[in-house]
Each structure stands twice: as structure tokens, then as C-alpha cells.
Design a protein around this nucleic acid. Structure first.
Ligand SMILES: [Mn+2]
Ligand SMILES: [Mn+2]
Ligand SMILES: [Zn+2]
Ligand SMILES: [Zn+2]
Lengths: 126, 126
DNA sequence: TCTTGACTTGGATTGCGTCCATCGTAGGAT
DNA sequence: ATCCTACGATGGACGCAATCCAAGTCAAGA
């Protein structure tokens, strides 16, 4: 556990949002000015492997890192600006996939993504 | 409607799979050798705008294009090799998101993605 | 003190997608 | 039939996110 990794973990712990790697880097730099982007990517990858952070690829843009990994939840994503909100899960989402429909896959998780426009994006002209 | 756009549409119609833009281009080149990648991207974008094809960003890699847009369905994705299988929807997935939980968003669609390992990837060493 | 190995760094590189200047061509006007 | 015009195609340049890599730094142990 180096100071760099600690800072990355702290940035995510403090913020209950869905940051991109570059946003995490920007916040990390405030505490440790010389930390590199490569190190942020390494630290994030390790946190994801440990299951402490969830990696989200909601669109074709930058992945987002979600520190709220202990409480399973879904996401509401704005198709225009990319804003993400957490949504509490309703029922067991795995229930929709009976054994016969799994094609032999070993299913480990389910992601439910609701897409639409956030209030401020819906307000503007289409 | 140019010959290029027709070829892209035909490639997707014929294949009931989930191709990347480059895979669509490779198949299109077999029928129209000089078609460019830019044109394939343009044609795919138009088909997506028309609602005839669904664009999927299941991981951080290339987007995949799904011609099965008329029948809403979910996806089973192999975390290792990226293989995608269609899964029939069970019930109305929008039911899990009551009005009070929408944060003012205008929700237009829901994606359910089951992640795991396909049979051949599960067979190999971890 | 010296050695070793793990970690960091910054720049190069890759993958995917978009942008843009230019070109070709189908269709309408003359 | 010839000319104009506008739309779409082309291919290469470009941009962004992420990874790779060679070199540098550092701490712990012999
Ligand atoms: Mn979240
Ligand atoms: Mn599908
Ligand atoms: Zn928005
Ligand atoms: Zn697989």
C-alpha cells in the first residue's frame, strides 16, 4: 500500500459520485501533485479487482468508477450529458434469467441501466 | 439510399449476431470492395437513428450493432471473450423504477445485461 | 552498504471513433 | 447532349481513452 494508492482510494471514498479516471486523477493531484495518470489507472484496476469499486461503461465515452460497490444498485444515465444517478434495486434481477436461458453461461452479475434525459437536458431544445 | 447504405443494411439483416463496426466493414467490403470505414460508420449511425439497429456498449471496447431492434430483449455477455447472446425479456423491466425514483429524468429505455463466462471460457483456467 | 524487487513515472503506442477536405456522381436545368 | 449542383463517399488526419513500456525511485532485508 503506497501513498499513491491510498490517495486514489481516499478520493473515491470521499465522493459518492461516478468519476472518470481523469476526474479521479485531477482530485488525486490536489493531494499528491506528482501522481501520474498511469498510476491512477493501476490503482483503480486494483480496487476493481478487489471488488471495492465498480467499473461502469455506460456509453462509448470514458469509464466511470463507482465506490458504492458494497450496496448493489442500478443506474439512471442521461443520454445527453452522461450524468449518472443511483437507483435502488427492486427484487432480484437474476430472477428474470431462468437456468434454461443461460446457454451454459456462469452468470455472476446483472446490470440494469435506465437511459433517458436528465431534467436539465430535457429542458433544452432537442 | 445509395448502394453503400444498402450493403451495410444487408450485412446486418443477414447476420443475427452482434457485430462491431469493423466486422460490418469487413463483410461489406466482400460485396463492395471500395466501401470506406467512414461510410460504414455513417450508415450505422443512420440505422441507429431510424431505430432499425441497436447500438451496444457492453464493455470498454468497440460498440456492437444489433439488427434485432424490433424485438426488445436483453443480453448475456461473456466477460472474457465478449460473446453476446440474446435473452428474452421477462416482464416489464421499467416496473422496477417507480416515478418517485426517477429524479425528474425522462426515461426512454432500459438495458439489462447479464455478465459471466461463456461455456468455453469457463472451461479454461481462471 | 549493497542488492533486490516492487512501484511510479511520462511518453509512446494502440484501439476506436470522428472530422474534414476533396472527389465522384446522379439528376435536373438549359 | 452538356453543364451545374448538391449530396454522399472517400481516405487520411485527428482526438480521446486506455494501455504499454523502459527507465527511474525507493524501501526492506542481507
Ligand atoms: Mn452507482
Ligand atoms: Mn441482441
Ligand atoms: Zn443530462
Ligand atoms: Zn467467453
Amino acid at each position: 500500500m503506497t501513498s499513491q494508492r491510498r490517495v486514489v482510494a481516499e478520493v473515491l471514498d470521499g465522493e459518492h459520485v461516478h468519476l472518470t479516471a481523469d476526474e479521479v486523477h485531477a482530485r488525486a493531484v490536489e493531494r499528491l501533485p506528482e501522481i501520474s495518470r498511469a498510476t491512477v489507472y493501476n490503482a483503480l484496476g486494483e480496487l476493481v479487482a478487489l471488488g471495492e469499486v465498480v467499473e461502469l461503461s455506460t456509453d462509448g465515452r470514458a469509464k466511470r468508477y463507482d465506490p458504492n460497490a458494497r450496496h448493489p444498485h442500478h443506474h439512471l444515465v442521461c443520454s445527453r450529458c452522461g450524468t449518472i444517478r443511483d437507483v435502488p434495486p427492486a427484487g432480484d434481477p437474476m430472477a428474470g434469467l431462468p437456468e434454461e436461458e443461460r446457454f451454459g453461461f456462469t452468470v455472476s452479475k446483472v446490470e440494469v441501466t435506465y437511459r433517458g434525459l436528465c431534467p436539465s437536458c430535457a429542458g433544452r431544445a432537442a
